[in-house]
């Protein structure tokens, strides 16, 4: 197996594009290097969503991030959905297209939950050809994200990071390393989050995610409704030292603050990267 080509040049530091910020982005041209859009929010015919996507895309690089590919489902791939993703990518020319290593439903139902897979050879053998087919249909590499999880399966025979690394090796896909999700899952399952970060091959890492969560003491819930916590900043610094400068995205899906607050939090990501890498990322 030849070595994977290097990921593209890092985009810098971005935030998730949310409708509440459309006007502020266009009026104030904030110091954000790129925006990540939720793919499904723009799989529509027209109107304001596509109008603002086009306007913001004209000013900033865009990455498409999906939540409904359900790459791990045993239901057949939804070819209409994939065609819609391909058409949207043709319209907004994203730097890359990502989704999650998970399943979101079966038998025609979408649970809108990012459910983890059992980390087994059976699951790998099921998912790998689906990733390959999606990549063929999209005409580009897929970038897959590790999910936060609360349950594990008795059948799992490898770690999540071993599964991700092997899936990337078999399919030549890239990985979106969600540092917050690593932290959340490490707390919920009792593993060392640095072992996860270190277990992912650097040449596969295309992007980092940062987000906030709800810490209930005995377990942690991935809520994306709060600033990034200190433990995740520390883990992010470790991920930077391990994998180098990687495009970093700050997510906020609930309790969305004014854009300037997110830009200020993004500055902390920049400062963390500068400190961790010894140079401006």
């Amino acid at each position: 197996m030849p070595a994977a080509p290097s990921p593209p040049r890092p985009l810098g530091f971005g935030v998730g594009l949310r409708p509440a910020h459309y006007a502020a982005i266009l009026e104030s041209a904030p110091a954000v290097d790129w925006f990540e859009v939720i793919t499904e929010n723009y799989l529509v015919g027209g109107g304001r969503p596509l109008h603002f996507l086009d306007a913001i895309r004209a000013r900033y690089p865009i990455v498409m991030h999906g939540v409904s590919l359900s790459i791990g489902s045993t239901a057949p791939l939804d070819l209409d959905y994939i065609e819609g993703v391909r058409n949207l990518a043709a319209r907004c020319e994203p730097e890359w297209v990502s989704d999650h290593l998970c399943w979101t439903g079966t038998d025609g139902i979408n649970l809108h939950d990012l459910l983890p897979l059992p980390y087994t050879e059976e699951a790998l053998a099921h998912v790998a050809p689906r990733v390959a087919e999606v990549q063929d249909r999209l005409g580009r590499r897929l970038v897959l994200e590790n999910v936060s999880s609360y349950i594990s399966y008795t059948a799992s025979a490898m770690t999540e990071w071993e599964f991700l690394a092997e899936l990337a090796r078999r399919t030549d896909c890239r990985l979106l390393l969600d540092v917050n999700n690593v932290y959340v899952s490490s707390r919920n399952h009792g593993f060392d989050p640095r072992a996860f970060i270190d277990g992912i091959p650097t040449e596969r890492v295309q992007q980092f995610h940062l987000a906030g969560h709800l810490d209930l003491g005995s377990h942690v819930i991935d809520t994306h409704d709060a600033p990034v916590c200190e433990a995740v900043w520390d883990l992010y610094a470790h991920a930077l030292r391990r994998h180098g400068p990687v495009s970093t995205l700050l997510e906020r899906d609930d309790h969305i603050p004014p854009l300037e607050e997110l830009v200020a939090e993004l500055d902390r990501a920049r400062a963390t990267a500068t400190a961790a890498l010894g140079v401006a990322a």
Partner: peptide, 13 residues
């Protein structure tokens, strides 16, 4: 039905 298919159907139900 594979183990994975079975698991997903049961979990979804």
């Amino acid at each position: 039905m594979s183990d994975l298919e079975d698991l997903q159907r049961i979990a979804q139900r």
